[in-house]
């Protein structure tokens, strides 16, 4: 009687498991769990004289150590009530929700507004500066600067 060749075949999975285990060990050791990025800012105080600098709509943002944020719009046509606004802080930190709403309102009234210059004070926390910048970036104000004391 003629023997039929067995058509089923078995793949040896042990090398595949070895390879996958090695890969998992290597990737676990080299994995980056904390994604570090950067918040880009320009120097607010440049080397050029003011007369040579082209005037563009700008928001000047003053941050104090108690969380109060003062926004002043320059070289832009915005409603008078938005030209200079003071936002009180919440528990000593800037009220980011109110700030975000105000920036969105400013952006709506002046779409060409993309520049914000932040003027922190000595007691202002680094985290508050970054949160303020983030609030501006979320509303399309990407050209950010920070001024020295």
């Amino acid at each position: 009687m003629k023997k039929h060749k067995h058509l089923d075949f078995e793949i040896n999975l042990i090398p595949a498991i070895d390879l996958l285990s090695t890969c998992i060990c290597f990737l676990l050791l080299t994995a980056v769990w904390l994604h570090v990025g950067s918040m880009d800012v320009k120097q607010a105080v440049g080397g050029q004289p003011a007369s040579e600098t082209a005037k563009k709509p700008t928001v000047w943002v003053q941050l104090d150590g108690q969380g109060t944020v003062t926004l002043e719009v320059r070289d832009a046509r915005v409603p008078a009530k938005l030209a200079k606004t003071k936002l009180q802080g919440k528990e000593g930190r800037p009220d980011l929700e109110a700030l975000s709403g105000l920036v969105a309102e400013l952006k709506k009234s002046e779409p060409g507004l993309v520049t914000a210059l932040i003027q922190p004070q000595a007691a202002t926390l680094y985290e508050d500066i970054i949160n303020t910048m983030d609030a501006f970036k979320k509303n399309g104000m990407v050209d950010l600067g920070v001024s020295p004391l």
């Binding site: 570090v36 950067s38 120097q43 150590g65 007691a123 926390l125 680094y126 500066i129 970054i130 020295p148």
Partner: peptide, 27 residues
């Protein structure tokens, strides 16, 4: 994140003086 700006101010001033116009704050 809890550092006060008075410490960062020295960096901002020094970078301006040394010709570094762009600052990237690590976050």
């Amino acid at each position: 994140r809890r550092v006060k700006y008075e410490l960062l101010n020295s960096i901002v001033l020094a970078s301006a003086q040394a010709g570094y116009s762009d600052i990237k704050f690590a976050v």
